[in-house]
C-alpha cells in the first residue's frame, strides 16, 4: 500500500508527520519512506539513517546528428516546449525543457535525432533498522520533476516487499508533481493547520483529491492555535479527521534542531497510534 502525506500549503508539518510516522512504525515492522518532494527534499534532515546506495537518475532527450540533418527546421516547429532551436547550420537542444514526447525523434525526416540519456537527478537509498528511506533530488534548473517522481515511485515499489507499507512525502501545492504522487497512491493524508490560511489551502487540496477520485483524510497539526473552522469544514464535507497533533513549543524547539519528535511527546505518539489504527497500517 502506498500512503501519501500531502498538504496544500508548505510548512504545515507534512515532513514532520511523514518522518515520525515512518520511524514510529519501523519500531514494530518493516516500512519504507520515500521523499518525493524532489525540489526540496528535507526528510533526510530528520532521519539518522545509513546510506546503502546512490545512483543517477536519467531522462531521455533527443541528440542531434549533424551528418543526417537536412536543416528543414521541422523539429523546432514541432517542439511546443522550446527545447530545440535551429541556429544557422546547427540544431541546439536544451534538455531541461524536454518532456520526452518523442515527436521530434520519431518524425525527423532525416533521422537526425535519436535519444540519449541525460542525468536529471540523484536517488539515494538508506536504512535504519526496519526503516528504508528513499530520496530523490532534482538537479537545480531541471524543470521536469514529474518524470523523476514517477521513476522514484517505481524504484521504491520494486524494492519494497509486496505487502510492505510505503509512506511517501508529497511535494506541496496542487500542480502536476503532486497530482503524479496522488495518482499513484492508494490513500492520502492531508496535513493542515487550524488557521484561515491552513483552511484555504486545505480546500484546494480537497478539490484535487476529488478530481482524482482518491480516498483521503485529514490530520490537523498545531492543534490549539487558530480556530475551529477547519473542524467545522471537515464535518460539513464529511471528511474524516484522523488525528490532531497539539501545538507545543517544546516540539517546535526539537524540530528546529532536526530531531524526531514522537520520542519526546506522548500526545504525538497517541495521535500516531490513532492514524495507524484507523488506517490499519500494522499487519
Amino acid at each position: 500500500m502506498i500512503l501519501a502525506i500531502a498538504s496544500g500549503k508548505g510548512g504545515t508539518g507534512k515532513t514532520t508527520l511523514s518522518t515520525n510516522l515512518a520511524s514510529y512504525i519501523s519500531e514494530k515492522q518493516k516500512v519504507t519512506l520515500a521523499d518525493l518532494d524532489v525540489e526540496e527534499p528535507n526528510s533526510g534532515l530528520f532521519l539518522d539513517v545509513e546510506k546503502d546506495l546512490e545512483k543517477d537518475m536519467f531522462k531521455k532527450i533527443p541528440e542531434w546528428k549533424e551528418s543526417e540533418c537536412i536543416l528543414c527546421g521541422k523539429c523546432q516547429e514541432w517542439c511546443k516546449f522550446n527545447c530545440i532551436q535551429v541556429l544557422g547550420d546547427e540544431v541546439m537542444i536544451f534538455p531541461e525543457f524536454c518532456h520526452t514526447c518523442h515527436m521530434c525523434v520519431d518524425l525527423c525526416p532525416g533521422s537526425a535525432l535519436s535519444f540519449k540519456d541525460v542525468r536529471m537527478g540523484r536517488l539515494s537509498k538508506s536504512h535504519k533498522g526496519n526503516l528504508t528511506f528513499v530520496e530523490s533530488r532534482l538537479n537545480i534548473g531541471e524543470e521536469q520533476a514529474v518524470s523523476l517522481i514517477s521513476q522514484t515511485i517505481d524504484y521504491t515499489e520494486n524494492y519494497a516487499d509486496e505487502d510492505e507499507l510505503i509512506i511517501v512525502d508529497a511535494p506541496p501545492g496542487a500542480a502536476c508533481p503532486v497530482m503524479e504522487v496522488v495518482d499513484k497512491s492508494d490513500f492520502v493524508i492531508l496535513v493542515t493547520e487550524p488557521t484561515p490560511f491552513g483552511l484555504n489551502d486545505l480546500k484546494i487540496a480537497v478539490e484535487t483529491m476529488r478530481v482524482l477520485n482518491r480516498e483521503f483524510a485529514v490530520v490537523i497539526n498545531r492543534y490549539g492555535i487558530g480556530n475551529d473552522d477547519v473542524i467545522s469544514y471537515c464535518k460539513a464535507e464529511n471528511i474524516d479527521i484522523l488525528a490532531k497533533i497539539n501545538n507545543d513549543r517544546k516540539l517546535a524547539e526539537l524540530y528546529s534542531k532536526g530531531n524526531l519528535l514522537y520520542k519526546h511527546s506522548e500526545n504525538l505518539r497517541e495521535q500516531l497510534d490513532l492514524i495507524i489504527e484507523k488506517l490499519h497500517l500494522l499487519k
Binding site: N82, C83, Q85, L87, M92, F97, E143
Partner: peptide
C-alpha cells in the same frame, strides 16, 4: 504566452 524556454527562444531571435 511562453511558459518554459523563453531564454533559448529569445536567444534564437537575437541569433
Amino acid at each position: 504566452q511562453v511558459e518554459h524556454g523563453a531564454g533559448p527562444r529569445t536567444a534564437k531571435l537575437v541569433f
